[in-house]
Amino acid sequence: MNKALAAIVTVAFSTLAAAQMTPVGSWHSFDEKTGELKSLVVISETGGVLTGHIEQLLRKNADPKKLCTECTDDRKDKPVLGMEIIRGAKKAEGKDMWEDGKILDPENGKSYTLRLTPIEDGKKLEVRGSVLFISRTQTWQRVQ
């Protein structure tokens, strides 16, 4: 009986650990230059496709009514708070990586090709945006 219970507990913890190796969840993003807490981004999955939106603006003196004046698509002049900034990312076959999507930087209105990679057992998320041969990577922290 004790062996069966131990096996169940082991499977349960293994499942929880594996579930964390996904971008799905809530994340804190940080300013690349200052390291200041910037926003809370929530990533969800529907039909194997990820989307992410800005749930909260956390920067000191952030304007909750700020609009994406630099955007050039359907998000032009829409509020940054609540804005969908991640679209279309899908899990790469056989890897703990999601790609083929786009990420929007609402500060400059530019969209980048996206790659999301959970690291440190899913506690952090490597967010890589690329245009042509130029890319930048941010590390987001999971919110428990």
Rank of each mutant, 00 (worst) to 15 (best):
R136Q: 15
T69W: 07
P118N: 04
A89E: 03
K110I: 13
P79S: 01
S14H: 08
Q56A: 09
K90G: 05
T51P: 06
H53A: 03
A18W: 08
L57F: 04
Q56M: 11
A6M: 06
K65G: 06
A89M: 01
D121R: 15
S39N: 08
S44I: 12
K66Y: 05
K65S: 12
T51Q: 14
T69E: 10
Q144C: 09
E107H: 03
E99A: 14
D100V: 06
K78R: 03
L104K: 03
W27N: 00
G52E: 03
A7C: 11
D31C: 14
D100L: 07
L16Q: 14
E120G: 00
H28V: 07
R59C: 13
A4H: 10
M83D: 11
K95Q: 09
L5S: 02
I134K: 10
I103N: 03
H53D: 10
A62E: 12
N61H: 05
T10S: 07
D121W: 10
V131W: 07
R75W: 14
D100E: 12
L114D: 00
R115N: 01
N2S: 12
A89L: 01
S135P: 07
K95N: 03
G35E: 00
T46W: 14
K76P: 05
P118L: 07
V24R: 09
M21E: 11
K76M: 00
L37T: 13
A18L: 15
T46N: 15
K102P: 11
K38W: 15
V49T: 11
K90N: 09
I134N: 13
K95G: 04
S29M: 00
C71E: 02
T69G: 13
L58V: 02
E93V: 05
K110R: 11
R128V: 08
I54G: 06
C71V: 04
T22Y: 07
C71K: 00
P23Y: 02
L40N: 09
K3P: 02
M83H: 03
A19H: 12
W140F: 09
L50T: 11
W27G: 04
L132Q: 10
Q56P: 00
I85V: 09
A19I: 05
V41C: 10
L37N: 08
A92Y: 08
K102G: 10
N108L: 07
L132R: 13
G35A: 02
K3T: 15
H53N: 14
W27T: 13
V41R: 11
F133T: 08
K91R: 13
H53R: 06
T117C: 12
E70D: 03
L16K: 08
D63L: 00
E45K: 03
A89H: 04
M21C: 08
L104C: 10
K33I: 03
G122W: 13
D105R: 06
L67G: 05
L132K: 13
E55T: 01
K33S: 13
S44G: 09
E84N: 15
Q138R: 10
V42Q: 05
I86P: 01
M21R: 13
Y112A: 05
D96K: 04
I85P: 00
M1K: 08
K66G: 11
E93N: 12
E70V: 11
P79V: 07
G52S: 10
